[in-house]
Write a protein that binds this DNA or RNA. Structure first.
Lengths: 112, 112
DNA sequence: TCGATATTTCTAGAATTTTAGAACCAACAG
DNA sequence: CTGTTGGTTCTAAAATTCTAGAAATATCGA
């Protein structure tokens, strides 16, 4: 069940989520999962595409899962990874929401 | 002049920008600027709000400026900082664009 | 049970980041 | 020119992150 963007738990996760995607390797991992869509990819599929050592990949995947950007589901021996795109959209929406929040004169904020 | 989101220069900056906002302190700085709207804030204004030592603040601001998330303009002795909200929107748009890009069967990508 | 495949955990070195005091510089008012 | 205000650069210590080999674990087929 996905929480709403105004949920304090989500607020708490904004920086960790951005940090998770702020690493080139993890960004590449996340992107390959985003590109793969709802079906996602098994860990081995990501490894094949990106040629990352298994332990490094596992480490990065864990961070993505920890912050909720990726979900994993075991199917027998293979672990299926899927990017939760909604989570990222919600995170971005937090910024949108508070744009110009401190501007008293509404004629002074043409951006939002 | 802002570049389009498909510009390779922008692509190159995605991870650094997300990383820049992935730090709690920098995220707080950026947010206070976003809230301040087009007018932005002088460095001292940010410091007053967030109570960060000047050298630490200066260091973080530089990183935000380096990746294009914040612009600075000197007005006499004070340095005015403004969040470039468009840059962040463009960065986020890059994700949106490539969602499900690798999915061949269009019935398999209900997310985009 | 044995072996193969898929993935994680342990470990540790290298690199980077974060933090902030202290010294420094630049612009301006007097 | 002198002092003050606004900000940066220098420096360095502490913390964190990144990377990947090696060993370990788990599932399944034969």
């Amino acid at each position: 069940m996905s929480q709403t963007a105004s949920n304090p738990v989500q607020e708490l996760l904004v920086a960790p989520r951005l940090a998770a995607l702020g690493n080139e390797t993890r960004l590449a991992i996340y992107r390959s999962l985003v590109r793969a869509g709802q079906n996602g990819l098994p860990v081995a599929g990501v490894q094949e595409r990106l040629q990352i050592p298994a332990s490094t990949l596992s480490h990065h995947l864990r961070r993505l899962v920890e912050v909720g950007l990726v979900t994993q589901e075991r199917e027998g021996t293979t672990l299926h990874c899927t990017a939760d795109f909604q989570v990222m959209s919600d995170t971005f929406a937090l910024f949108q929401r508070e744009c110009c929040a401190d501007v008293s004169d509404p004629t002074q904020n043409p951006c939002c």
